[in-house]
Amino acid sequence: MLGLIQGLNTKMSALIPNEIIADNAVVGLSPWQQAWRRLLNNKAAVVSIVLLVIIAVLCIFGPLFSPWELDSVDWDNMGTPPHLQSHHYFGTDSNGRDLFVRTLEGGRISLMVGLLATAVSFIIGIIYGSIAGYAGGKTDSIMMRFVDVLYALPFMFFVILLTVYFGRSIWLIFIAIGAVEWLTMARIVRGQTLSLKQRSFVEAARVTGASHYSIIKRHIIPNTLGPVIVYATLTVPQVILFESFLSFLGLGVQEPMSSWGVLIAEGAQQMESAPWMVLSPAIMLAVTLFCLNFIGDGLRDALDPKDR
């Protein structure tokens, strides 16, 4: 919280020179509540949240309302454009499979990969970063040196390598992506922790005899959450993109399972004869990525409004 309040003050001083720093915080609101209000005032972010909820609900429940299954073939409608009477709202592919169901099922996979992999990286990053920052000294420099080395590795290629060796499994993608993305998270948390542990409330906790574990858990981690949440929100689209990228190249999700990347790859091959095939997954993917990016930007402005 203290960090956030300080962030607010820095922002004020950036807007108007040091001379006039007004205590502009609204009385009676915690910094989190203020950030929430600021987010609600950001139109792009609010629209994005609404759209994203709609997409998520559609992906989760949409397939239930279609008479078609993920891999059921409609022999009467093969490669047809969107058509309401036959309940092919997004059309069918050249094998007669319904694209509405396939796109939404693909969305489930993409969103799930995005959330789970981000959660994995979130947890690893917070634990690793806070321990490194809190321990400081040699431990810190060794731990961060390790991160630096991993950072320089071309990870995307290692993930592809993994898929080559261990076969193409969706779990592998979760773990691989999560394992890559935690690096930045760890750096952010470590940086925050370094400055937090100098603060008086951490000193106070130490003086009262709190254990290292409880200091990290109660005082350090909650205070690093702001920037970490922002980064996590911006990680989700990256992960979704990464999954689609692998699937597009044929290295990710495999048939008959569907994913936006797989559908785009299929659609791209028949773009001239059946443009709707690439259109629906591409639009869904693009809208989702847009929304997540706008929410991430909005959160950043709301939590650390320095750059507005």
Partner: peptide, 9 residues
């Protein structure tokens, strides 16, 4: 004068 925008109010 300065225009101040806190993003809240």
């Amino acid at each position: 004068d300065f225009t101040v925008d806190s993003g809240i109010q």
